[in-house]
């Protein structure tokens, strides 16, 4: 980007009224999504999913199985998209990359001492570089929530900028762990810091803390993205992660994206769901649309 960007004063970010945000979210959920709109929406949701496994007990076998699922969501039903990406720990990037080499599915790796982020900057950079060197297309970093809550916004900003540099060509998603930020004003502030520091995507949660993604948190982040777009014309992506497990709630999120940022964001280049159980619920709904009946969950593969 050749244009110079004035970095705002992060102590004075836009104010948020929580009650108003919740009311707006309730309006999104009252949209009625039927027929073709539903079918099209469900397929969009599938194509936006980052299938995720982030556990201490992850093995190569488990990651390979998930990668297969990412490219073969439900072969019984023709015409389905693949998942957008798989999301794994850095140590599994190589395996995932190999397993997905003939597909368009991206490999995203968490990094920077995920999920707590409690480490030194050097280690975080090394962690990022390791993942990128192993072939990660996308890096999901966590911010230092402790520093953020101390009001040390420059620290958070610099850290994101440093990780972004370490990413090279990989796209950077910045995780706020909104469940630890406690207020929507903080979510807004974190969004602005991350966006100005170079995030390609902003992401709600690690999935390790409850509450994870919620509609109000996501709306505040989408509005921060919109304000940045108004100012610069630059698009930033959004990834709610954790806690979205039903097709119905995923459709509500799409309604929110459509009515806040518009059609340009309704693709997996700009919007993702970080989720593992969501895919099967969407598949169940799609099979219901196709056959007219709900099938048992045993008909949908769990990888």
């Amino acid at each position: 980007m050749s244009k110079t960007l004035i970095i705002p004063d992060f102590t004075k970010t836009a104010t948020i009224d929580q009650v108003g945000v919740e009311e707006r979210c309730a309006r999104f959920t009252s949209r009625s999504i039927k027929k073709d709109t539903k079918l099209h929406g469900l397929k969009m949701v599938l194509s936006m999913i980052d299938l995720t496994t982030l556990e201490g007990k992850d093995t190569e076998g488990k990651v390979k199985q998930m990668c297969y699922k990412a490219t073969h969501l439900h072969d019984v039903l023709p015409g389905l998209p693949t998942a957008a990406a798989v999301c794994v720990y850095p140590s599994m990037v190589k395996i995932a990359k190999e397993a997905l080499k003939n597909s368009n599915v991206k490999v995203a790796s968490v990094a920077t001492a995920f999920p707590s982020g409690q480490s030194t900057r050097e280690i975080k950079i090394l962690d990022t570089k390791f993942a990128v060197d192993n072939g990660a297309d996308e890096i999901d970093m966590v911010i230092s929530r402790g520093e953020f809550l101390k009001g040390n916004f420059n620290f958070v900003f610099d850290e994101i900028a440093a990780v972004k540099e370490a990413c090279g060509k990989a796209r950077l998603k910045v995780i706020f762990e909104t469940g630890e930020l406690s207020t929507l004003d903080n979510v807004r502030k974190a969004s602005e810091i991350a966006i100005y520091a170079g995030a390609d995507f902003i992401k709600t949660s690690t999935g390790k803390i409850s509450p994870a993604a919620t509609m109000p948190v996501t709306l505040v982040m989408l509005e921060a993205i919109r304000d940045y777009y108004y100012k610069t014309g630059i698009m930033i992506g959004m990834k709610p992660a954790g806690g979205i497990s039903t097709a119905k709630s995923a459709l509500h999120y799409l309604v929110m994206v459509k009515e806040t940022l518009g059609m340009a964001w309704l693709s997996n280049e700009w919007f993702r769901f970080g989720a593992s159980s969501l895919a099967n619920d969407v598949l169940m709904q799609l099979m219901k649309e196709a056959t007219g009946v709900y099938q048992s969950s045993d008909y949908f593969s769990k990888d």
Binding site: K35, D36, T37, K258, M263, A264
Partner: peptide, 10 residues
């Protein structure tokens, strides 16, 4: 921003 070019509500 383009809000209405596709995925409109049935």
């Amino acid at each position: 921003l383009d809000f209405n070019s596709s995925w409109n509500y049935a």
